[in-house]
Design a protein around this nucleic acid. Structure first.
Lengths: 130, 130
DNA sequence: CTGTATCCTCCGAGATACTG
DNA sequence: CAGTATCTCGGAGGATACAG
């Protein structure tokens, strides 16, 4: 089998080229997940809707600038939904979209592998240090 | 239920604190996956051992500096194994460790979500543009 | 062939102050 | 409350040349 060149920024025409389209799909997922605060933010939303200030309070050391920026990205990516309630003053709620909620499957796989891999590394280290 | 504060750089003592230990495990996995070239490199290794130059040829625009750097990180993380053959000149082969190969489960989940999510976004866009 | 060594650029993210 | 506006800095990654 002739292996195909793999390009991190591949163009759309080659979407039917198998290994590359996989890399593309993984890249899409990565883009949603990368950034220092995306994961913590998503973790706060797992148990339901939250307001800006609530999220800020639950994530130590995040600045409003970063929270705002990351929430906007997540919204643009169709991961979270932003709802404005015209109370006085206005309150804003953030929550997962269905698509956002379904990313939990990915996170589950990552948790499982992360824990297994940590054990593997620990075992290797403890054997080395006997 | 009292929600716990989520910290991206949590210390090890709180490993038993459930939501945080999940975030930690996900972070471990992310650390292995982040970097512009890790995924393309891993993609080249899916079908078996490869030499430095072979990998370099299959990944357009990667520089030896970056390939070297990323391979070293992958090796340190226990994802790939580096084997030196004392031919003349020496040839070096890179391949997955079992732990590295098992990350495929994560990638599969990412491929599936990435493709679903792309469809979701496409549908939304095409409805907007009717 | 399998990498290192330098130098350089750009962007993610922190600090801090301010706004409607 | 829910953000925005500036300023700054470190580190990821590129270009290019060189080494064993």
């Amino acid at each position: 089998m002739k292996t195909t060149a793999i390009d991190p920024k591949i163009d759309l025409k080659s979407i039917k080229d198998c290994p590359n389209s996989f890399v593309m799909a993984v890249n899409d997922t990565m883009n949603v997940l990368t950034g220092k605060w995306k994961l913590p933010i998503m973790a706060t939303l797992i148990f339901g809707k939250k307001r800006f200030k609530e999220i800020e309070r639950e994530i130590p050391r995040i600045t409003p600038r970063m929270l705002s920026k990351e929430l906007r990205e997540l919204e643009l990516n169709g991961i979270v939904k932003r709802t404005v309630h015209d109370t006085i003053p206005v309150t804003i709620e953030y929550e997962f979209t269905p698509s956002g909620r379904s990313i939990k499957n990915v996170l589950d796989a990552m948790v499982e592998w992360g824990q297994e891999h940590r054990n593997t590394v620990m075992n290797r280290l403890s054997k080395v240090n006997l």
